[in-house]
Amino acid sequence: MQDLFASLEEIPKRQRVRNVAPTFQPPIIPQHLVIMDSASVKQAVMQQVSSEANMANVRLLIEKLQENCFQKCVPKPGGSLSSSEQSCATSCMEKYMAAWNKVNSSYIDRLRQEQGVQM
């Protein structure tokens, strides 16, 4: 009996939480995930970690893009960012990202090669 009352009280409480913070919806957890086994906990943690690593990666890329393209495209900062500076910056960014990809693939190729030599 006590439990039944407790669970009845749960419903308006949840409603209230939703009304206070409409932007944050508590996730609806599928029944099969309510009792998480260690494997799915592990998976969730790993997903979180890898998305954080991606974020760090993106942040670093933005920093580098800005630094390098500012050096290249805005040699003497004027009163505003001119249209030629802007178009230079956009092509510079695209070029930097292309260069990043090329460097990454060359680096990985080289690592593979060295591992092959060692084995």
């Binding site: 990666n57 670093l60 890329l61 580098k64 390098n68 393209c69 290249k72 495209c73 230079c88 956009t90 092509s91 510079c92 695209e94 070029k95 930097y96 292309a98 260069a99 990043w100 460097v103 990454n104 680096y107």
Partner: peptide, 21 residues
């Protein structure tokens, strides 16, 4: 790769930026 791109960018792209590819 971030570090290497930085190094090689200053080595290989000395002039003005020409094109985005």
């Amino acid at each position: 790769t971030h570090q290497l791109t930085q190094v090689c960018w200053t080595k290989c792209f000395t002039g003005n930026v020409s094109g985005s590819k």
